[in-house]
């Protein structure tokens, strides 16, 4: 499926924002891209255990949504969580430590790539069974509502998850109870290798949400400003008790579904067209076009990010693994009564 949004980020859209904010968006997105590329290389060289699901090409959805959140808001993620985690404020180091299976990782080496999270930063370990995090996010939003707290939950999932019962049950309950959750559907056109056109007759996945009586919008998910603006509007609604909101963020995975996927199911012309829609490339061009930012400034941002990630890689490579004493700990919280 070819891109349906114009490639250029509109000038009047980019003119609305401070230079520093735009540079921050670029830095956040570049950090995700660089992190994922570095991790891919670590896997290829055999330095990292496990498997990975990467998000190159989808940086604008994570960054656009998280920029619309407050620091103390919550986010739930999926088997493809690296970008969401970085955008939510987890450091490259704490994630890399986890990917290397270190006791110093954000989940003490017990989670791994598909369960990255840090509750202190508002992100519980990612839930890697498709759709499984959607009821959990709705439940977190229910708690926030019952506790009369101002926070909201951003719930990320892919196009594939909208066929799960968990999606339908949770969106419906969030709808009938007006829960403060933004459902962020990253429609990257493929659930693993299956094209979205093969799993629904609907022309748009947002119709699956409007069926539950909630506001649902389709957004250019590779234009970080478009994502940010829609997410901000959704967040305001949720905080006002008028949630939930569903955002269909149209994007494209520029990498395989997982570690060894050569993407033979994606037509070459389609891949080429979407490569041109790379969200980093589009923001970079728009920034340079605006004239306030120079190539050397962007390169300085990129260099600083690369150096920080390289330093984190060097630390994470040498970090200690868990000991066998850690094997059976952390199954239960210490009981407040009895055994």
């Amino acid at each position: 499926m070819m891109p349906m949004f114009p490639r250029e980020i509109p000038r009047d859209q980019i003119a609305k924002y401070e230079r520093s904010f735009l540079l921050r968006l670029y830095e956040e997105m570049f950090r995700i891209r660089e992190f994922e590329e570095r991790v891919r290389f670590l896997f290829l060289e055999g330095a990292m255990p496990g498997t990975i699901h990467q998000c190159q090409g989808q940086e604008a959805t994570a960054v656009g949504v998280c920029q619309a959140l407050n620091e103390d808001d919550y986010l739930t993620s999926t088997h493809r969580p690296h970008g969401h985690a970085l955008a939510k404020g987890l450091t490259p180091l704490e994630i890399l430590l986890e990917l290397f299976g270190s006791i110093e990782g954000c989940c003490k080496g017990k989670g791994g790539s598909m369960h990255i999270g840090n509750m202190a930063k508002g992100m519980p370990p990612a839930i890697a069974i498709v759709g499984g995090n959607i009821p959990v996010a709705a439940g977190m939003a229910l708690a926030l509502k019952m506790q009369k707290r101002p926070q909201i939950v951003a719930c990320f999932f892919g196009d594939g998850a909208t066929s799960e019962g968990a999606f339908h049950e949770a969106v419906n309950m969030a709808a009938i109870w007006n829960l403060p959750v933004v459902f962020c559907c990253e429609n990257n056109l493929y659930g693993a290798s299956t094209h979205v056109s093969k799993i629904t007759r609907l022309p748009s996945l947002r119709q699956r949400a409007t069926a539950y009586g909630i506001e649902a919008l389709t957004v250019d998910g590779n234009n970080v400003l478009a994502v940010y603006e829609m997410a901000r509007t959704a967040a305001v609604k949720c905080r006002a008790g008028e949630g939930p909101v569903f955002l269909e963020l149209i994007t494209y995975r520029l990498t395989g579904h997982s570690r060894r996927d050569p993407c033979l199911y994606m037509p070459k012309e389609e891949r080429a067209a979407w490569a041109a829609m790379d969200p980093l490339l589009r923001l970079r061009e728009a920034l340079l076009d605006r004239g306030e930012v120079t190539v050397s400034e962007l390169e300085a941002v990129e260099l600083a990010v690369k150096q920080a990630i390289e330093q984190a890689v060097e630390i994470a490579r040498k970090a200690p693994p868990p000991t066998l004493d850690d094997l059976e700990t952390d199954v239960y919280a210490k009981s407040e009564v009895g055994i």
Partner: peptide, 23 residues
């Protein structure tokens, strides 16, 4: 006393989410 639709997977997951945030 939260009366749910007939959606066991959904509301057990919601119970878990609410529990994670201190309920």
């Amino acid at each position: 006393m939260i009366n749910t639709p007939i959606a066991e997977n959904g509301f057990f997951g919601m119970g878990m989410g609410a529990a994670m945030l201190g309920m």
